[in-house]
Amino acid sequence: MLTALMPRTNRGRETMMALVFASPWFVGMAVLVVGPFFMALYYSFTDYRIMGDTQWIGLANYRELLEDDRFIKSLKNTAYFTALSIPLSLIASLAVALLVSKPFRGSTLVRTTIYLPSLFGGVFVAALASQVFSGNYGLANRLLAYVHIQGPQWLASPEWSKPTFVILGLWGVGAGMVLFLAALQSVPVHLIEAAIVDGANSLQRFWNVTLPMISPAILFQTILLLIASFQVFTLTYVLTSGGPADSTLFTVYYIYQLSFQKFDMGYASAASWVLLLFTFATTALVLLIGSRYVHYEFDGAN
């Protein structure tokens, strides 16, 4: 390497330049991430309502959260939604990726079509869903009526509201498909060939070769989905406002209500810290379980 031959003083200059180039990120980290992160922790120990003084009240917010039925309900709703949507999304996006992974006539068009719904922003999905899943005149129930099924009230029913959200999430299966397609294409052909030589049938090949080889992508996608589903907000805000009967009251929406409708910033900060800890704990658990099963062919050098 040529730079290795350069005099030692250039190292110092290179570090200087690096700090200059990376400075937007350093400032961003300080101003947008680390600072606010600890401010939120501080607020969570105070009674702070935007107008008026900030009062230190110790753990009172956290104690109140423990007895706040709506907060507990919002955590349960979030957990239910996460537990239902993540496995379904993973399976659906992997299945779709497998269906379109081998090139065929028109495969680009097919992949693009499946990806199309992922381009719809949350508000637009919500606006469309409000009509498709309308209990009375919605497209879903009219289609079900063709096969003589009386459709549910979807978003207006406490039993069906969360599953409807899961269905809406599945409509964006194309984003996961793209990730898995990239992973599937990096599975070495010689391994598949070797398995064929050894007489493995397609199911065995999938289970013993393909699945281990793409397991890092599965873990990565699981974590992305996990973080996203803990954040579910827009659909609730536009479609249900948390209802019916608080069945779609998810934690981020509840935090939004506390902070921007009641302006109870201290209490809302405490709630957001609890959600953060839940997110971390779940992510750590997934990583821990994942590290047992995930197969890494290459070292993490890139």
Binding site: M29, L32, V33, G35, P36, F37, M39, A40, Y43, I50, I223, I227, F230, Q231, V252, I255, S259, F260, M265, A268, S269, S272, W273, L275, L276, T279, T283
Partner: peptide, 17 residues
């Protein structure tokens, strides 16, 4: 790691700032 940080934690302080 910051990719995994849920944005709602920093939301309230940012709003205040």
């Amino acid at each position: 790691a910051t990719l995994m940080l849920p944005p709602q934690v920093t939301l309230i302080p940012l709003y205040v700032i």
